[in-house]
Design a protein around this nucleic acid. Sequence first.
DNA 1: ATCGTCGATTTTTTT
DNA 2: AATCGACGAT
Length: 848
Amino acid sequence: MTSLPDAPQTTPSSVPIILDGWQGDGTDIEATAGARAGGRGSRGSAGAGGPGPWRGPSERLFDGLNPQQREAAEYRGQALLIVAGAGSGKTSVLTRRIAGLIESREAWPSEILAITFTNKAANEMRERVEQLLGGKAQGMWISTFHSACVRILRREAETIGKTPSFTIYDSGDSRALLKRIIKELDADTLGFTVGSAANRISKLKNELTDLETHARSANLSDPQEVMFLEIFRQYTRELRRANAFDFDDLIAETVFLFRAFPRVAALYQSRFRHILVDEYQDTNHAQYSLIRELTMPVAPDIADELEAHGRNVGPLRDAAGVIPSASLTVVGDSDQSIYAFRGADIRNIVEFERDFPGAKVVLLEQNYRSTQNILSAANAVIANNFDRKDKKLWTAVGDGEKIVGYTGYSGHDEAQFVADEIEKLHSAGMDYKDIAVFYRTNAQTRALEEIFIRSALPYKVMGGTKFYERAEIKDAMAYLITVANPSDMLALRRILNTPKRGIGPATETQLASYAEDNGLTFRAAMRDAGSLGLGPKVTNAILQLSNLLDEAAAKIDPSNPAGVSPVADILTFLLDGSGYLDVLRNSRDPQDEARAENVDELVAVTREFARNNPDGTLVDFLTEVSLVAAADEIDDSSGSVSLMTLHTAKGLEYDAVFLTGIEEDLLPHRMSANEPGGPAEERRLFYVGITRAKKRLFLSLAMTRAQFGETAVAMPSRYLQEIPADLIDWRQSPGSANGRGGTQSRALNARRPGLGAGSGGTGWNDPLSSSTFRQERPKAEWPNRVTGKVRDNGDLELAPGDRIRHADFGEGRVTQVTGQGAKRVAHVQFDKVGAKKLLIKIAPIDKL
DNA sequence: ATCGTCGATTTTTTT
DNA sequence: AATCGACGAT
C-alpha cells in the first residue's frame, strides 16, 4: 500500500464521516475497512502522475478506446445511457469510467455503486478497476442487485422487523413452503400448483405489489382469487415468522424500506454519488424502482436530520440545501433482453431518455469479439425483430471462417457431431476452456454428457442441478441455517429427522402444538421435550438434537469468551454430532458414497471461504451461498469445455461456440409461443448465443429428440432460415435430413421470395443431395445411434493393434491407449466412421 | 416410524 | 427416464 496524498479538496470531505456511521453492525466488511483506512484505497499513479487534484483522469486510462467508447467513459453528467451492442467493449468502458472518476478525485471509491448481473462479472469488474488504479480501491460497492440489497437489508433489518441473520430462501425453498401451504388449504382442487402460485407471487413482488395492495384490488367474488389471496397471505406470514426473505423480497423490501424511511434512504442517496448499472435491459420494475430511489435528491429537512445525526453531508448540499441526486450510468442492449419471463421490462432502457431528461446517449457498434461472418448472421437474425432501433454490428477483423451447420438424426447423433468437432478443434490447438456448448433447456445436457463421457472429453456443466441444490448439501446447509437463524422452520423441519432419529410427523405436530399452547418457539419446545410425555427414545433424540444446536449456537455467539468459531468448525461439529456423515458412509446405498463426498466438498468450501474472508461470519457464508449464480461457477482455468443454457451464456465469450437444438419447439421454445413477445425474445436468445462466438460458430439440430422417454420428430427452427445461406457450410443440412417428406417441413424450409441471395432451390446450402444421403446412411442403422445403457467393461485390456467392435461405430483398430485406471482412453481408427477417442470403461465395445 | 412399490408427472429460461 | 408423492405392509 502506497500512502495517499492529503485528501483532495474536490472530494467531498463528508465521505469518511458518513462511512463512520456505517460501521454499526460490522456486516459491511468493505465499507468498514474503507472507513478505518480513511475512506480510501491506495493509488499508484494518481499522486505520482498528476501535479494537482483538479486534473482529469490521465490519458493512460483511455488507451485503446475508440472515440465512442472514450466519449462514454469521459462524459460527465447526471444521466448516461450507453447502448452497447454485443462485444462492443462495454466492460472496458465501465471500468475506465469508474477508474477515471476515482483517479481524478471526482469520487471516493466508497461513492461508487456498480451493479452487475452476476457475481463473477462483479469480481471481474472490481479486479479490472483495481488494475487500472494500480492498487486496491476499497469501499466500492460492485455487486449484483441481490447482493447489494442483502447488505442494505442486513444492516437495516431491525427497522423492518427482521434480525440481521435472516435467511434467504431460494426458489426451491419458496416452493417447498408453498407446497405445504397449498396442501394445507387443499388449494390444488382449485387448480393451484406450486409453480403457478410461485410464479404469480414472484410477478407481484417484481411489480412491487405487496399483499395489502393486491388484496385491495382483488376480485373477492372469485373463489380462485380468494384462495390465491389466502396462499399469498400465509406465505407472507410464514416468511415473516421464519425471519426470511425470498429472492424477490430482497429487491422489493429494500424499495419499501427506502420509501417508508426517507432518512434511511437518504443515507444511501448521499453515500452513492455515482451509480452504474450493467445489463440494464434486464432490469425489472422493482430493480428499476430501486435505482430511482437511489438517484433521488435528498430534501433539505432530511439532510438537516442527517447532519444532526453526525453525518457531515454539508459539502454535498447545494444553495437550497438539497443533496443533489447521484449520477446514473446505465449500459444495455435491448437486443439482448432475455429475461422478460421474470419481469424484465425492456421499456426501462427504451424509455431511459424520457425517465431521465437530458440524458446523454452513446452508441457502441464496433464489435471486438467476433468475425464478420458471425456478426452478419447475428445482424440478419435480429433484423427480424421489428420494433427495435436498427443497429448493425461491424468488425475490422475480417470474415473469418464460415459457420458450420449439422443436422443429426437424434440428439445423440448431434452430440456426437459436437464431440467430434471439439476433438478436431482441440487437436488443431484450441484449448478446451475456449470452447462452449449452449442449449435452450437443461434437459438437453443428458445426451451431450453421455457422449462427452464416452469420448473422454473434459467438460463442465454450468448451472443446471447445482451443487447447492443437492439434497445432502441442502441438509448440511439446513443445519447451519438453523444455528444462524433459529426461527427458520423450513430449515429446522428439514433436519429434524435427518438423519433418521425417530422424530416423525406425529412428534413434530405434538411439539408444534406444545409450543403453541405455551407461547414458546418450536426450538424452546424442543428443549422442553422432557415434559411432553413422549416415549423415552424420542424424547432423548429431541433433546440430543436440541443440545447439539445450542452448543453450535454458542460457537457463533460473539459474547462467548471462547470466541467465535470458523464456519468449517461449526459445520464439522454439526455433522459429527448429528451422525449425518456416519450414516452416509455406513449406508449400503452406493449413491450415498458420492453424497458423503459432496458433503466433504462442502466442508472444503467452508475452509476456502475462511481463507478468502478471514472475518467472514456464518451469516456471510450463508449469504454468499444463497446468491451464487450459475455463471459464477465458471472457472476460466479449468481446462474443460463449458456446457450451459443460452441464458447463462449471456455476457460470456468463447473462441468456439456450439449452438445445439436449433429446432422448433425448443428454440423458440414451445412454451413461449403463447406469450406475447415470446418469439421475439427467443430470437434475441438465439442472437445472444451467436454473438458469444469469437472465431468459430457451429449450429446443430436433430431430426428427432427424446423427451419424456419418447422420441418426437423435430423441425428445424424458423430462425435458421434468417441466416443468409452463404454464411453457413452445412455438413448435413436440414433440407436433406428432413427429405422424408413432411409437407410441414417443406413449408418451413421453403425460401421466402425476395429474401437472401438465393438462386432458388431449397434455400439450404446443401452439399448432399438427399438421395445420396439416404443411400449412404440408411435410416435403419444410424451410425451414431446410442444405446442408453451404461456399461462397465471392468478392466478390459486393450493395446495398440487390437481390433474391436463398437455398438454404434462398427469395427476399428486401436491405435493408442492413454490415461490411467478408470480413465483409460482408447484411440480407435474405425473402418467406417474415422478416428474416435473412447473411454474404455464404459464404451460399448468388444475386443475381437 | 420406516421402508418399498406403484403411479403420476415432468421440462423453459434464473437472481 | 427419472424423480416425487401416496399408499400399504412391516
